[in-house]
């Protein structure tokens, strides 16, 4: 469970990144955070595993503040960034997924077990010996997810997981995320495009200018998403007409 209590963050240049955010996300939820560029989604995500430090307020992961044990927070909350390429460090797909567990100083057997499971979950096991930059966009995105899965984080945070993907890539990532949610992981993802998650997510949080402006069940909020600068899913537009 994640508890965010009146979190505020101001960037060094003086702009307000986040302002007084309070949220509780229960285990097993599938939360979508939507909003325009610059509304604070990525900044919020960076706070969840301690990459940024709040100016005010605090974040508790299962009751323990992030700041108290950053390493633990990073294991509990797996953060998948928007740009898959800058996350890929290994020379092969296998080596890249092993990067996280190696950093945790696990035994070789445990590393092998985790990498195999993670690659199976995202469906990349047949590409284990490939070089990462040979992969397609969707495969790279799934590799980035596998790299985080190998940390065995119960909470997955995905920043714009569908950006810059072709249609098959979107389908691959969609079904991968749905499967991970079905296994009981908490999913938090940000997107501009609610069409891609409308069937899966249970809760929608709308952000604007660093604040949470709406928070509730996805279906109930779909009608007023355009106020936050987010495109209404096609099927809602059709219904309205």
């Amino acid at each position: 469970m994640i508890e965010i209590r009146s979190l505020s963050h101001r960037f060094p240049d003086g702009t307000q990144g986040l302002e007084d955010i309070s949220l509780t996300i229960r285990s097993g939820e599938f939360v979508v955070i939507a909003g325009c560029n610059g509304s604070g989604k990525t900044t919020l995500f960076r706070h969840l595993n301690g990459l940024l430090k709040p100016d005010a307020g605090d974040i508790l992961i299962d009751g323990i503040p992030v700041a108290a044990d950053i390493l633990r927070a990073r294991q509990r909350v797996g953060l998948v960034f928007q740009d898959a390429d800058s996350q890929i460090v290994g020379e092969t797909v296998y080596a890249d997924v092993a990067f996280g567990p190696e950093n945790l100083c696990l035994s070789p057997d445990e590393i092998r077990r985790r990498v195999t499971i993670a690659l199976n979950l995202v469906g990349l096991e047949h590409l284990a010996d490939q070089r990462p930059h040979r992969l397609s966009g969707g495969e790279k995105r799934r590799l980035a997810i596998a790299g985080i899965l190998a940390m065995e984080s119960p909470i997955l945070v995905l920043d714009e997981p569908f950006s810059n993907l072709d249609y098959p890539g979107i389908l691959q990532v969609q079904s991968c995320i749905a499967a991970l949610h079905a296994q009981g992981r908490t999913i938090i993802l940000s997107t501009h495009d609610l069409d891609k998650v409308a069937g899966y997510a249970s809760r929608l949080i709308l952000m604007r200018q660093g604040r949470v402006i709406q928070d509730g069940p996805l279906e109930a909020l779909l009608q007023n998403v355009e106020a936050a600068g987010v495109k209404m899913p096609c099927r809602c537009v059709m219904k309205r007409r």
């Binding site: 797996g78 996280g100 950093n103």
Partner: peptide, 23 residues
Amino acid sequence: ATSEAQQSRCIQNRRNPIYRFTK
């Protein structure tokens, strides 16, 4: 971006400087 992604995967647990430089 690289540094953030690596911190998210606990690179700071690694003490070997050559590993850090290379990665």
